[in-house]
């Protein structure tokens, strides 16, 4: 058998799960979709004493809108984001980005919160969370706290979650009416990890960009939001000048590691090119939306 020996618990309630995490702390790992944890177990890179399987907790299987936020419970599979038209309306960036996550076979099982908690710096959903300003709801026996996405990711495969905390929910703000979003990625094959991916959002008004969001995956130890590049898009009244400045900023600031798939320089090049492509696409969509039609 590939995985190391572990004790297995499958609580039926969040309270029981939190009790187990409080008792076992860092010796426990939460198992949701298993698309990240199971490979680590099979490779024996992870050797938890206790696996806390949350798949029996029906209370974590919800996808709802509340006060302008899309709330995604910890058991929601990635595939559901693709299939529910409401998600596209509320957070179109999620619908677009999730298709780049692994393959359908992976997304049928993998969860949204699981991908966020795993915090692979090349993964798509963490970059989306940072781009849109998601808030991550961590629950423990001692209470609930909401962590802004930008503070949640602290390093490769490392988050602000404490060992006794469960990432119970991710909250994504619903997009504003004049915003357009776009997500593009370059990988060796469709479904592979991103060599570089960019999530972009722009708010159109008076024929120019009024506000912008840019986040990058595969470009550093955590998903990176580039405020300097966002500012460049807003400062220039000419779209293409703004895009040139933002792309140059991405190339200058980002410090991706090189590996055998792509050198650091090539990843920086991709970041610059994808910045331009995503911003143009987001801009077109923002103008279509603010003009009344929905792309």
């Amino acid at each position: 058998m590939k995985p190391p020996v572990f004790d297995y618990q499958d609580p039926a309630s969040v309270e029981e799960a939190l009790e187990l995490l409080a008792r076992h702390g860092a010796a426990a790992k939460v198992l949701a979709g298993g698309q990240s944890l199971m490979p680590l177990l099979n490779l024996r890179l992870a050797r938890p004493e206790v696996v806390v399987d949350i798949n029996r907790i029906d209370a974590l299987d919800y996808l709802t809108e509340e006060s302008g936020w899309l709330r995604v419970g910890a058991r929601v599979r990635q595939r559901r984001l693709e299939r529910e038209a409401e998600v596209r309306r509320m957070v179109p960036l999620l619908t677009e980005a999730v298709r780049f996550v692994g393959h359908p076979q992976i997304r049928n099982r993998g969860t949204v919160c699981g991908s966020l908690a795993h915090a692979d710096p090349a993964a798509e959903l963490p970059a989306v969370a940072v781009a849109v300003g998601a808030r991550l709801v961590a629950r423990s026996r001692s209470g609930v706290r909401e962590i802004p996405a930008e503070e949640f990711f602290t390093g490769p495969l490392t988050t602000a979650l404490r060992p006794d905390e469960l990432l119970a929910e991710a909250r994504f703000p619903c997009t504003g009416p004049d915003w357009g979003w776009a997500f593009l990625e370059v990988s060796n094959r469709h479904g592979d990890y991103a060599l570089c991916a960019v999530a972009a959002g722009v708010r159109a008004g008076d024929g120019r960009i009024q506000d912008a969001r840019l986040a990058y995956a595969g470009a550093g130890p955590v998903p990176v939001r580039l405020r300097e590049a966002e500012a460049a898009l807003v400062e220039h009244s000419d779209l293409e000048e703004g895009i040139r400045a933002a792309s140059a900023e991405a190339r200058r600031v980002l410090q991706p590691d090189g590996d055998l798939h792509a050198s650091s320089e090539f990843r920086r090049h991709l970041a610059a090119v994808l910045t331009a492509r995503t911003v143009r696409l987001a801009w077109t969509r923002a103008r279509t939306r603010s003009g009344g039609a929905h792309a």
Binding site: K2, Q35, M38, N42, D53, Q105, N108, R109
Partner: peptide, 13 residues
């Protein structure tokens, strides 16, 4: 009815 990886599922799940 949905394709999944059986190497990434525990049998008891």
């Amino acid at each position: 009815g949905e394709p999944v990886r059986s190497c990434l599922l525990l049998a008891i799940q």
